[in-house]
């Protein structure tokens, strides 16, 4: 029978964070939310790595302080995590910078709208006809579209994209 020690709880928590983050990245429809989900997933992964080197009651891994090596926590996962955190921060900063650029270019951060407009842009740049929107119902709409529920600032911008924001 598995006993619920402190480590087990943290382990489950770390995996849970990673899963929450990964799910959030897959299901969110807003680029900024995707970025936040990424930050959560990364912290989950980092926590898991730190845990691999954790020893209950261990001391800092510094030789010469008189502690025997057996009582030290494992330094390698800590080094790996430091590297991973630094890389993660850099990538997230880059992502925020790109988000600003994307918002300046399209005036929205909604994934569905961006995908349609980017597809149209790619097609226009290539001089071909764009495919129909992936969100459009096949065979057209039998009824006139319902008025969209615009959420202020977050989520889908509606009804018309703000052309004034384009450079």
């Amino acid at each position: 029978m598995m006993s619920f020690t402190f480590e087990t709880v943290v382990l489950i928590g770390a995996l849970g964070l990673a899963v929450i983050g990964a799910l959030g990245m897959v299901i969110s429809n807003h680029l900024f939310r995707m970025l936040l989900a990424l930050a959560i997933a990364e912290s989950g992964a980092n926590l898991l790595i730190v845990l691999t080197g954790f020893r209950a009651g261990g001391v800092a891994p510094i030789l010469g302080a008189g502690d025997p090596a057996a009582s030290m926590v494992d330094p390698i996962p800590q080094v790996l995590v430091l590297t991973a955190i630094v890389i993660g921060v850099g990538v997230q900063a880059l992502a925020v910078a790109l988000l600003i650029k994307v918002y300046q270019a399209y005036g929205t951060l909604d994934v569905r709208e961006l995908r349609d407009r980017m597809d149209a842009d790619v097609a226009a740049a290539a001089g071909v006809e764009a495919d129909a929107s992936q969100d459009a119902p096949a065979g057209g709409r039998p009824l006139s579209p319902a008025p969209s529920r615009g959420t202020a600032g977050f989520g889908r911008r509606s009804p018309a994209p703000a052309d004034g924001l384009r450079p």
């Binding site: 990673a18 983050g21 990964a22 990245m25 680029l31 995707m34 970025l35 990424l38 997933a41 990364e42 989950g44 992964a45 980092n46 898991l48 790595i49 845990l51 691999t52 996962p77 790996l80 991973a84 890389i87 993660g88 990538v91 880059l94 992502a95 790109l98």
Partner: peptide
């Protein structure tokens, strides 16, 4: 970048 970072999280978990 997002898909790549998503992949990195997976790779890190595997390495862990």
């Amino acid at each position: 970048l997002m898909i790549s970072a998503f992949g990195s999280v997976f790779a890190l978990l595997g390495i862990a």
